[in-house]
Write a protein that binds this DNA or RNA. Structure first.
Lengths: 358, 358
DNA sequence: GGTTAGCACTCAACGCAAAAGAGTGCTAAA
DNA sequence: TTTAGCACTCTTTTGCGTTGAGTGCTAACC
C-alpha cells in the first residue's frame, strides 16, 4: 500500500505538507489548530499534535521554543520538495511575460541570461541570478582583428560556445595592416580550438618563425589571448532584485543579510556551486546543503542552460529557505525552456541550412 | 575682515565644522558638551548652545527632538562641503592599492570602470558605482564582420569612443563570404560617424542599390546596427559593495533601504543624474539635491571620466548623507586621475605614432 | 554686550514586572 | 487509537517609573 511508502503515513504527509505550505506562506511556526482549520482532516487538534510530535522526532519538524508551533526542518523541506510538491501552473499572464520580454532581448547570450534572471526575480519575488559558469577549458573558434592605428588594433575572439570577446591591443612598435592580416591568419590556424594551458612556448616560437616580418607582434597578441582565455575561464555572475530579499523577515537580521550580500558580491562561492553541478536538471540547495555557511538560512535553486550538449549558462533564484519552490521551479523551467528554444531554433536553422550549404 | 565672510563668524564656522565632523563619524546628534571637550574653544558650553541655537535658526542645524543634540541639515552639510572641508591626504597604502589594482585591469574601459568602482567601495566603505553615461548620439567608427555559417555571422562595431560591441546576426536566407565582405565595406562607407536618427530609409535604399547581389542583406544588417546604436545610447551602470550600506544605522529602516536598493537596480534615475552633469568636475549631491525622492537620506558623489574632451564614463559613491566627503573626494580624484592617465598615455602614444605613420 | 553658571524642563531610552496569548504535552476517558 | 480538557511554558505586548543626555532660560558677571 502506498499509505506506508517512504515511512510516512498518508496523514503524516498531509500534515507535513500543510505545515510546510503554511510556513512558506507565512514564515512563522505553524500550530495544530491552524492546520485543523485550513485542512479537511477528520481528526482533532490533539491528534495532529501527536503526529507533529512524531514528525519532530523523525527530524522533519523543529520547534523554535516549547510553546511555539512547528517549523519544517531542512530535512522536512527536502522531503517536501522531493515528494510532496504540487505542480504549479503558470498563469497565461506569466507565460506571456516570459515570451514577450525574452524575445525582445533576442541577441547575445549574456543579455538573454540577464533578462531571464531579471524576469525570474520579478515573477518569483526572490533574487535572481544569471551565471556563465566556469568551464574547465574554453577555446576560441575564430579570431578577427580590427586595425585602428599603427600601434593600436582590436582583437576579437569568438568562443566555441558563440560568445564574442574583444580586447584593445596597443603595441609598442608599429604594425602594418598587412602584418596584422598575416597575424590574424596565424592566430586562426594555430590557436583555435585549444585551451589556455596548451599555449606553450614552442608553439609561440613556431608561430613567430612562420610570421617572419613583424614576428615580435605574435608574442603581444598571444599574451592578450592568454589573458582573454583566462577571463573566459573565470565565469561571470550577475544578480538582480536584491531588494526583494528585504521583504522576508528572515533577512531582517542585518548581520545575516550583510553576509549574504557579501557572498553575492564576491560571486565566487555561488559560481563554484553552480559550476560544480553535473547534469542539466534543476538543482535545489536548501540551507546547509549548499555547504556555504552564509547560505544556511537561504535556498538556491538554479537551472543550467544547455546548448549542443554543453552548459553555457545558468539562471537561478536565491531566497529564504522557505521558498515557494513550486512557483520557482515552474518559473525556471519556463524560462530555461524558452531560452533553450531560442538556442535550438538557431541550431535547427543552422543545421538545416548547413546541410544544404556544405 | 574674513571673520564675517559668508555671514558666519569664525566661531560659528568652527562649531558647525565640529558638529558635522562628529556627526559624520558617529551618526548621531551632537551636543554642546561634546564639542567643548573635543575642540579647543575658549568659551563655555552655554555659549556653544547659544551659537547652536543661532545656527539652527539660520538653517544649518536641526534638532531631532527637544532634548537631543544637533544634527547638520542638508544646508549645513552643503556649507561644510563647499567651505569647511579639509583636504584628505591618501595614505601611501591607499595610493599603492589604486595603482596596483587598476594597472592590473588595464584593458577595456568597462573593466577599468568596474574595477575602479570596486576600489572606491573598498577604500571608502560606501557603495561604489561605475557608469557609462547616456550620450546624446553615439556613432560607430568602424564595422567588421565575422563569417560563421551561411546564415550566421557576427557584426562587430567599434564606437567613436573606442568601445567594442558585437551582435550575432542570423539571416533567413544564406549569405556568402563574398557578399558579407561587400556588405562590410558598405557599412563602413555609409554608416560610420552617424547617429541612429540619421539612418534613414533613403540611405538604406541607396545602400541596397550599391550592394547589388544580396541587397536584402543590407536591411538585416542595418536593423541590427540600429538596435546596437540604441543600446549604446542607453548607458550602463554597475554597482558594487551594496552590503557596505548595511553598516550605517540610517539604513536600518528596511523600507528606506529597500527603496534605495530598488533605485540602484533600476539604474535609470542615477544614470539620468550622472548623464545630466555638464562639466567634468566631481559632483556632490546631498539628499534632496538629487531630486530623487528615495535618495533624500543619501548622498551621491561622482566624477566623470573624460577622454578627448568627451565624457566616456563616471565613477562614484553612494552612501548616507553624512558621508566622509573628504575621503570620498580624495579617493575619487585619485582613481579618476589614474584612469585618465591610462587613457592619456594611450592617446599620447597614438598621437605620436600616427604623426609618423600617416 | 557678550559670556557664563545654574537650574528646571523635555523627551527618548532602558529596565522590569505584569498580563495576554498562542501552543504544547499529558492524562484520562471514549 | 482518538479526543476533550487542563496545566504548563515561553514569547510578546503593555504599561510605568527611572535614568540620563541635552537643551533653554534666567540671572549674575566681566
Amino acid at each position: 500500500m502506498s499509505s506506508e511508502n517512504r515511512g510516512l503515513t498518508e496523514r503524516k504527509k498531509q500534515i507535513l505538507k500543510a505545515i510546510v505550505d503554511a510556513h512558506i506562506e507565512g514564515g512563522g511556526p505553524v500550530g495544530s489548530k491552524y492546520i485543523l482549520q485550513n485542512q479537511q482532516l477528520k481528526c482533532s487538534s490533539a491528534t495532529i499534535r501527536n503526529e507533529m510530535a512524531e514528525l519532530e522526532e523523525m527530524g522533519y519538524l523543529e520547534q523554535p521554543h516549547a510553546s511555539a508551533g512547528r517549523v519544517p526542518s531542512e530535512l522536512g523541506l527536502r522531503f517536501y520538495v522531493d515528494t510532496l510538491l504540487e505542480h504549479y501552473a503558470m498563469t497565461t499572464h506569466e507565460i506571456a511575460q516570459i515570451n514577450n520580454l525574452l524575445r525582445a532581448k533576442m541577441g547575445e547570450l549574456d543579455q538573454i541570461l540577464k533578462a531571464a534572471s531579471n524576469l525570474a526575480s520579478n515573477l518569483t519575488n526572490y533574487t535572481g541570478i544569471a551565471i556563465k559558469p566556469r568551464v574547465s577549458s574554453v577555446s576560441i573558434a575564430k579570431y578577427e582583428t580590427i586595425y585602428l592605428e599603427p600601434t593600436h588594433y582590436i582583437l576579437v575572439a569568438v568562443t566555441s560556445s558563440g560568445a564574442v570577446k574583444s580586447k584593445h591591443v596597443r603595441t609598442e612598435g608599429e604594425i602594418t595592416e598587412e602584418e596584422l592580416a598575416r597575424l590574424s591568419g596565424l592566430l586562426n590556424s594555430y590557436l583555435t580550438g585549444i585551451p589556455a594551458e596548451q599555449i606553450t612556448l614552442p608553439l609561440l616560437m613556431e608561430m613567430e618563425t612562420r610570421m617572419g616580418e613583424g614576428a615580435w607582434q605574435v608574442g603581444v597578441a598571444v599574451k592578450v589571448i592568454y589573458a582573454l582565455l583566462r577571463e573566459l575561464d573565470e565565469g561571470e555572475m550577475s544578480v538582480s532584485g536584491i531588494n526583494r530579499l528585504l521583504q522576508y523577515p528572515e533577512y531582517s537580521d542585518v548581520g545575516h543579510l550583510q553576509e549574504l550580500l557579501g557572498t553575492l558580491e564576491k560571486k565566487e562561492d555561488i559560481l563554484d556551486l553552480v559550476s560544480r553541478s553535473q547534469n542539466d536538471d534543476i538543482s535545489i540547495m536548501i540551507g546547509s546543503e549548499s555547504q556555504v555557511k552564509v547560505m544556511n538560512n537561504s535556498a538556491l535553486v538554479f537551472k543550467p542552460i544547455v546548448k549542443d550538449g554543453r552548459t553555457v549558462g545558468a539562471i537561478g533564484v536565491i531566497g529564504p529557505r522557505r521558498m515557494d519552490y513550486a512557483k520557482v521551479l515552474a518559473t525556471l523551467e519556463g524560462l530555461s525552456g524558452n531560452i533553450t528554444n531560442m538556442l535550438e531554433t538557431d541550431k535547427q536553422l543552422n543545421g538545416g541550412r548547413s546541410d544544404g550549404g556544405n
